[in-house]
């Protein structure tokens, strides 16, 4: 596995931001009322993540360490603004249903976390792949939650009626509490799979939480 596919695998499976790192919980819980919303949120975050990783990795030797946070925020906020205008122009219905959560991508911990722990330390290409991997991991997570919630809460998936019309939707699943139930159950399921894989001898290293490994971190010296 070369280092680019390793980055993709890392974002999608090993350190999946939704189910393993538990980052970006606010949009995860708030916008996943339907599968379409989940994908929309995931992809717009992915776009911002890839672009901000790209730019921050390019600027990593120029940005002074003491002001790196404001610098990252400026970069991320610029891309979020661009994405927001593009969405308003081309997918207005999605823009309306995601609402305030699009500008809130600025403060999404995944994006700032990747900038801090990966893009500011590694070259451009791996950083882009890191962004793609993490973004797709986030998208998959949100889509999975969205599909389950939409199916149980309204009997549909991607607005297509899947369950027979005699099914009485359990409305709580498209309301806020349902997000917690579904997130918890899906996380438990993937932990189960992960544990089983670990028992079979497939190495599944512990996630470090920030994605970089403690020996390369350097956070302690800085603070």
């Amino acid at each position: 596995m070369n280092k680019y596919t390793e980055r993709l695998y890392n974002g999608l499976v090993k350190e999946n931001p939704t189910f393993v790192l538990m980052l970006g919980m606010c949009p995860t819980l708030a916008v996943t009322t339907s599968a379409v919303n989940g994908i929309g949120m995931g992809l717009s975050t992915t776009a911002v993540l890839v672009l901000s990783n790209l730019l921050i990795s390019m600027l990593r030797k120029i940005i002074p360490d003491s002001v790196r946070m404001p610098a990252f925020i400026v970069v991320v906020a610029s891309f979020v603004t661009i994405v927001q205008f593009l969405m308003e122009g081309f997918v207005p219905s999605l823009y309306d249903s995601l609402g305030i959560y699009i500008p809130l991508i600025v403060v999404n911990c995944i994006i700032l976390g990747r900038a801090e722990s990966y893009a500011s330390k590694y070259p451009v290409l791996p950083s882009i792949f890191d962004g793609i991997g993490m973004g797709l991991g986030f998208t998959v997570g949100l889509m999975a939650i969205g599909i389950v919630r939409e199916l149980v809460g309204s009997g549909k998936v991607f607005n297509v009626q899947l369950l027979p019309s005699s099914y009485e939707p359990i409305t709580i699943f498209i309301l806020a509490p349902g997000a917690f139930f579904v997130l918890a159950v899906l996380t438990a399921l993937q932990n189960k799979v992960r544990n089983r894989a670990a028992k079979r001898g497939i190495p599944m290293p512990e996630a470090t939480g920030c994605g970089a490994g403690c020996e390369t971190c350097g956070m302690k010296e800085k603070e």
């Binding site: 009485e168 939707p169 359990i170 409305t171 709580i172 699943f173 309301l175 509490p177």
Partner: peptide
């Protein structure tokens, strides 16, 4: 309450 919210 779960039922009340789900099947009002």
């Amino acid at each position: 309450c779960f039922l009340l919210i789900s099947f009002t």
